[in-house]
Amino acid sequence: MSALIKLEKVGKTYFRGKEPIEVLKDLDLEMPEGAFEALMGPSGSGKSTLLNLIAGLDSVTSGTISVSGVNLGAMSEGQRAHWRSQNVGFIFQTYNLLPVLTAAENVELPLLLAPLSSAERKTRSLTALRAVGLEERGHHRPDQLSGGQQQRVAIARAIVTDPKIIVADEPTGDLDRVSANQILELLVKMNKELKKTIVMVTHDPAAAERASIVRHLDKGQLT
């Protein structure tokens, strides 16, 4: 498989006041297209920072990061936002659905940025909800759904724009084991059936087991 995500000598430094904090150091990494990768490591190891860089949420301090041959470092903030809307789906630990919108509207949200008619947006939202098994719950608001169901809605929102990459930051961190397993099975399904490249940060070894590749970070370097 060819590399979809390629990091070369990537470094990321934050500043706490005037004190530099080097979170990632000269990181070289290739993630193949269609992979399901798990990033593990202790708190502060840099895995969330790495995820943010891959997702185009943050910019590197040194080195280059490219996705499908596109150098993210060369993009402006606005260009990266546009790129994210087309290429990246996000799954967060706390679901992060908008409480005032229904499940279907939450899924439809990223499509507002695409040049689609209202009917097309609704059709795609319904398709995504069907893919996660929640087509009957589209009219429910998040507070009327269980945690596992909310995370499935979040997955539907992540795939509705048909992105190449899905980034998941502790997607099972707030769920019980049964719900967590359902979410992980869904991610595996997205990876195998929809050919999505998934990069997942997790502390949970059981979750990492579902990934095809597991990488460990410590102190900003792969181990």
Binding site: L57, G78, A81, R84, S85, Q86, F92, N96, L109, P110
Partner: peptide, 13 residues
């Protein structure tokens, strides 16, 4: 604020 962060993440400007 957190919600606005999510919206920015998924591509809203």
């Amino acid at each position: 604020t957190h919600e606005y962060g999510v919206l920015r993440a998924i591509g809203f400007l």
